[in-house]
Design a binder for these strands. Structure first.
Lengths: 339, 339
DNA sequence: GTGAAAGCGCTAACAA
DNA sequence: TTGTTAGCGCTTTCAC
């Protein structure tokens, strides 16, 4: 079933059918209607892939998501869908795995699918590699800022600072930060945590797991918490890892927040469950997705339009997993000593 | 950068380059090596889409997933990836939404992407529509049995029976079942629950929400539980809905399992969290995905091979969300009265 | 408005 | 082994 068949059925040229299908000018309203009608009754479907090949265009949008299990990416996906809903562009997805990111490979598969632009959330590559990638295919980076490349992200420094300060304000001193392998794009939260701690006169304790999943976090957390003088609070890189800490804590008989305060990142649905009730930083992932979708659309239309750099403010959502420090072993602070 | 460029660089014909890239016979080992080498240094990438067009083949596999938020689909996805890892076939994804399923639309997008086979998990369409779909494109249905169509699924009747019996065995009488809109493919669990209840001499109480999400379930559950004589146990269609029941219960001051026993379905990661600890039925979704991937591969190679119908046995995983019924208002049963 | 001809990047015979 | 030719389903000139 090709445009030829439709053309024959209606008794016009194939070229006219092509024009009619693209809503291009140069075809009478009457012809258009007849053609579309005939196409429907014949069950003809426009072959956008062949069209792209012939027109040397790339109208498909590629979406790379780091992880299927982390709900934040479901939200990004929804946002992208919101933005692209009525654009008519196809979206093809490629999904990786938080513990074994295969950015390059997955994005390659999108390039092979001949997409016109790639929306990537979240790239683990180095800045240098991201820029190289952006040379090969128009790229919109989500939740990761790379100067010179289109990007849409929440302010990680603000988020990490809010999280860390929140714990400091609650009187915690031994606050650990749990993160994954040192991917360049994920360093911002860590660095900010360390800076805020240092400024507050506390010693940062950064713990690095092998990956960013719950499972990866749980193993490391058990070691960190099972010592003589464990941290009284943990700030985890994301909610997944926070859940790992939570499981580790419970398995050691520690209560949250009585014995351990816990802060996550992403404010995922799990954080809101009764009994989990996790303090977390909301990145507004769906909005990130929406903006990324819009940016991708702009990029696909004007390959060399201005580079977009959209930064949103995250929000700390305080819930029941954080509470004032009640660790008796903590040294009294100055004011306490003088009082 | 086309095969022509590579051919010119090496000084051979375009056809030879084509053959070399497909590992087809008729090209000497020396030529192949030179060609592949030149291609790499030129940065040439084989255009599988143009190849499909020319060869009139369809090597891409389409994967439809009902919902991004329900982890069971992440598991199916992983399974499919396992199966396709070294097959060389591209996979394109289309994802819908549990509360507003758009099967037809999403699968259409896959058909438009010119896929050779569609793996669908889970279709909400009627059996009739599914079969019509299967005529338009080779289809492998996951977690939904449709006679005459390739399918890979867990035995819903066994799962629902195990869940219902488990609650009955714990002494519960007023056991409600919470499900979503009546999609044909989702009726098996409900019908089984109702049959088991009736056989046990109990009155089934099936409650239908508008969708299959946590949110949809929560609203309905609140109404069901906030009555004079509420059910002492609920069997939910899936873990997502069970979480909704859980939230509703807690918001009404009911404790689980003391005041309410709860069974889900899918044995998702959330079910295993400390404090959630949800009794659930494991469908072994990753294995379903693996088998579906294998079936799709077989179908794409032999369009009219035998129809596959793979059924797995689900497993009830008993956790802390279910306990013996302690409802004092329950009428003593016969043996109790005699003792 | 319409039709003919060329070409997108590739494969598939068939000859050479 | 290699090169030649035709054609996949479509768009795009450009003349009618």
């Amino acid at each position: 079933m090709t445009q030829d068949d439709v053309a024959q059925e209606v008794g016009v040229s194939r070229a006219l059918v092509s024009l009619a299908f693209r809503g291009a000018p140069g075809v009478s309203e009457a012809s258009r209607r007849t053609i579309l009608e005939a196409a429907r009754s014949l069950g003809y479907r426009h072959n956008a892939i062949a069209a792209d090949l012939a027109a040397k265009t790339r109208t498909t949008i590629g979406l790379y998501l780091l992880d299927f299990r982390n709900e934040v990416y479901a939200d990004v996906y929804r946002g992208v869908r919101d933005a692209l809903e009525r654009s008519g562009n196809r979206v093809v997805l490629a999904v990786s795995d938080a513990d074994e990111p295969t950015d390059q490979q997955a994005v390659d598969s999108l390039v092979d699918a001949r997409v016109g632009v790639v929306i990537a959330a979240t790239l683990m590559l180095t800045d240098v590699d991201v820029r190289a990638l952006a040379k090969a295919v128009p790229l919109v980076s989500v939740a990761r800022r790379v100067p010179g490349v289109d990007c849409v992200y929440a302010d990680d420094e603000a988020g990490a600072e809010a999280a860390t300060r929140h714990l400091l304000d609650l009187g915690h001193r031994r606050i650990a930060h749990l993160t994954g392998d040192e991917y360049e794009g994920h360093l911002l939260r860590r660095r900010t945590y360390e800076a805020v701690m240092t400024t507050a006169g506390r010693t940062p304790q950064t713990v690095v797991a092998r990956g960013y999943s719950q499972e990866a976090a749980e193993g490391v957390a058990r070691m960190v918490l099972d010592v003589a003088d464990p941290p009284t609070a943990v700030f985890a890189h994301n909610d997944e890892m926070a859940l790992g800490v939570r499981e580790a804590a419970y398995s050691l008989g520690l209560r949250i927040p009585e014995d351990l305060s816990l802060v996550g990142y992403d404010d995922s649905r799990i954080a809101r469950l009764h009994g989990v009730d996790l303090t977390s930083v909301d990145q507004h992932a769906r909005r990130l997705g929406q903006d990324a979708g819009a940016a991708a659309l702009a990029r696909i239309r004007h390959e060399d339009g201005p580079v977009v750099d959209v930064r949103h403010a995250p929000d700390l959502v305080v819930r029941g997993s954080t509470a004032p420090c009640r660790d008796e072993s903590r040294p009294a602070d100055r004011r306490g000593a003088l009082a």
